[in-house]
Design a protein around this nucleic acid. Structure first.
Length: 191
DNA sequence: TGCCCGATTAACT
DNA sequence: GTTAATCGGGCAA
């Protein structure tokens, strides 16, 4: 019996939730897969959208945990986040990559691509593959069309610097499944 | 109102 | 390795 993750799972620090999400399964309207890469953003973090206080765009981040924050990136892509911590702390986990397991034909069609390694390897690609847009901003993670399933085995989680940011770029708040072939970028091995 | 730039991606050289 | 595409948010004026 696979456990469904509900809002209580997110009622913790984003730095605890983020690595715990690695290996969990995200489904959206019959498509999705295992979460293999995420990044943590906290409201005291200069790289976070919530750093400068609440605005119309980031309002969901300032709401209760267990909800979805979707924003437009570079005027082109959508990016998916899960809100963490008790209401008001304004932290979230960016979903950066999935290992596709369910609904591959639909994801291939939306991406115009066959290679499963590239279907969901990046935050913009995840949203394009699953068909997630701003219309889903503010949706609950434990209510349809979203389903989130806990991992069934322990995950070997690695951490490293986040991608594509200029502020607080040295913080090791990117988490991934060690050795996964479905990451947006490899993690530097620790030798 | 105008300007700068970004939690990206794909197509280049 | 480099760069265009593309546009809304946030801040200065």
């Amino acid at each position: 019996m696979v456990k469904t993750l509900t809002k209580g799972f997110f009622r913790r620090s984003v730095h605890e939730v983020a690595p715990d999400l690695i290996g969990a399964t995200l489904l959206f309207k019959g498509a999705g897969g295992r979460i293999v890469e995420v990044e943590a953003y906290h409201h005291t973090d200069p790289a976070a959208h919530s750093f400068r206080g609440p605005t119309a765009r980031n309002a969901v981040m300032f709401g209760p945990p267990g909800y979805v924050y979707v924003y437009r990136s570079y005027g082109i892509h959508w990016c998916l986040n899960f809100v963490c911590e008790p209401k008001g702390s304004a932290s979230a986990v960016l979903i950066r990559a999935l290992e596709p397991t369910t609904g591959l034909p639909a994801m291939r069609r939306r991406r115009g691509l066959a290679d499963p390694r590239l279907l969901c390897a990046g935050p913009g690609r995840v949203c394009q593959a699953l068909g997630i847009t701003a219309a889903h901003n503010g949706s609950a993670l434990d209510e349809l069309p979203f389903t989130l399933l806990a991992r069934t085995v322990e995950a070997d989680v690695v951490a490293g610097p986040r991608i594509g940011i200029t502020k607080a770029a040295e913080k090791p708040w990117r988490y991934g499944l060690k050795g996964s072939a479905f990451l947006s970028k490899p993690f530097r091995s620790r030798n």
